[in-house]
Write a protein that binds this DNA or RNA. Structure first.
Length: 337
DNA sequence: CATCCACCGGAAATGTTGGGAC
DNA sequence: GTCCCAACATTTCCGGTGGATG
C-alpha cells in the first residue's frame, strides 16, 4: 500500500533540477516565519518544492489540499486532524474547531500549507484565511495557487492586510528540465536501456507540465513490451490525455464529469461552445445516465471549478452582440507548446 | 432610443445530512 | 424514535451586461 514508484506523483525524490531562486525564496520565507503566496502554472513543482522545504523544518507542519477541503469547516477539520494526528469527528461547531486549532498553533511554531487555495476561495470566500491570518501565534501561512498571481484581489482587504504574503512565482519548466527530471525518474524505476532518447525528447518538447510528463512516462511504460520508443510515445497520447483528465475529474463529482463530457462532445461538433449548449447537452447526458440534472445556476459554478483545474478555458462576454455568456474550450495540454 | 440577446452571478430561500440530546 | 441544529448543497429569484438591430 505504501509502495511509491518513482513514476507516481506522490513520490518526493531529491530534486534533480534545482529551482534555485524559488527554493531560496521559500527557505528565507520559512526562516523568517513569513506568510508566503506561491503561484505558477500547473506542473511547475509548486507543491513538490513546498513539501520538500517544510519537510525538515523544526516546527509543526500541516499541508492540506483545498480542492478536497473547499469549505472553511472541512479545511479546519483537516488541519486539526493533521496537527493533532487524531481523527476529528464532525459535529463540532466551527468556533470550537477554531479554538482547538488556536491552542495547537499557540503551543508550537507552525507552518500551514493551503494547496489549491482557489477552490476554497471560490466556494466559500475568505473566512478561513481571515481567521488564520488573525491567529496570534508563530504561524507561517503558505498559500499555493495555479490561477492567481496576487491574493489581494481574491480576498478582502482586511484579510490581505494582515497576511501581507511574500509572493513567489514559479516559471514553467524548460524542455531540458523536463527531460532531466523524467530521465532521472526513468533511471530509478525502469530497466536500463528501456527508454529511447528520442521518445523522451519528444515528451519533453511537447509539454512543460511535469505532471503531464510523468503521466506520459507512466502510461508509456505500462504499454511497452521492453522499450519505450518514440512511436509508442506518440501512440499513447490520447490515453495520456484521458488519464490526466480523469486524475482531476475524479476529485470532483459525477456532475462535473458529465459537464466535461458534454463540452468534449460539443467541442468536436461545433466551432464555438457556449454555456447554453453545454447545459442542454448535459441534461441529455443526465437522462442517458439516469441522473437528476442540476440547475443551470449550479452548473455555472461547476464549470468554474473545472476551469480552475485547467482542463477547460473560457472566454467571458458580459453583454455585446453575443449576449452575456461564455465560450468554453477544451485545453489540449499535449500539443500546447 | 428601445429592445433584444443569452446568459452571469449575487442573495435569499429551501432541501439535505448527520450528530447530539432527550 | 424524534426533535433540533449547524453545515452544506442546491434551487429560486432577479437585476444586470453593452453592442447590434430596427
Amino acid at each position: 500500500m505504501l509502495f511509491r514508484s518513482p513514476l507516481e506523483e506522490s513520490f518526493l525524490p531529491e530534486p534533480v533540477v534545482d529551482r534555485e531562486t524559488e527554493s531560496q525564496q521559500l527557505n528565507t520565507g520559512l526562516e523568517n516565519l513569513q506568510n508566503l503566496h506561491i503561484h505558477g502554472p500547473r506542473g511547475t513543482g509548486k507543491t513538490h518544492l513546498t513539501k520538500k522545504a517544510i519537510e525538515d523544518v523544526e516546527a509543526n507542519t500541516c499541508c492540506i489540499s483545498c480542492l478536497e477541503n473547499d469549505t472553511q469547516y472541512k479545511a479546519l477539520r483537516q488541519i486539526l486532524q493533521e496537527l493533532t494526528g487524531e481523527e476529528v469527528r464532525t459535529g463540532y461547531h466551527t468556533s470550537e474547531l477554531q479554538r482547538k486549532i488556536q491552542e495547537q498553533v499557540e503551543a508550537l511554531e507552525t507552518f500551514l500549507v493551503l494547496d489549491e487555495l482557489d477552490f476554497l476561495l471560490l466556494n466559500d470566500g475568505d473566512d478561513l484565511l481571515y481567521f488564520l491570518s488573525r491567529l496570534n501565534a508563530d504561524l507561517g501561512l503558505i498559500t499555493i495557487t495555479a490561477n492567481h498571481k496576487d491574493l489581494s484581489c481574491q480576498v478582502e482587504e482586511r484579510t490581505f492586510s494582515t497576511l501581507q504574503p511574500q509572493r513567489i512565482g514559479f516559471e514553467p519548466f524548460t524542455g531540458e528540465e523536463i527531460y532531466e527530471v523524467l530521465a532521472d525518474r526513468a533511471r530509478k524505476s525502469l530497466k536500463p536501456q528501456s527508454l529511447r532518447r528520442e521518445a523522451l525528447t519528444y515528451i519533453a518538447s511537447s509539454t512543460q507540465n511535469l505532471k503531464v510528463g510523468l503521466t506520459w512516462l507512466r502510461v508509456s511504460a505500462h504499454h511497452a513490451e521492453d522499450t519505450i520508443t518514440e512511436t509508442l510515445v506518440k501512440d499513447v497520447k490520447k490515453e495520456v490525455s484521458q488519464t490526466y483528465t480523469k486524475h482531476w475529474l475524479q476529485k470532483l463529482t459525477d456532475h462535473h464529469q458529465l459537464l466535461y463530457q458534454a463540452i468534449e462532445e460539443l467541442d468536436t461538433e461545433q466551432e464555438v461552445v457556449q454555456t447554453g449548449d453545454v447545459y442542454s447537452r448535459y441534461k441529455n447526458l443526465c437522462q442517458a445516465y439516469n441522473e437528476h440534472p442540476l440547475t443551470d445556476r449550479r452548473t455555472s459554478d461547476y464549470l468554474k471549478q473545472i476551469e480552475q483545474t485547467g482542463l477547460i478555458q473560457s472566454q467571458y462576454y458580459y453583454g455585446g452582440n453575443k449576449g452575456k455568456t461564455r465560450e468554453i474550450e477544451i485545453v489540449d495540454f499535449l500539443t500546447q507548446y
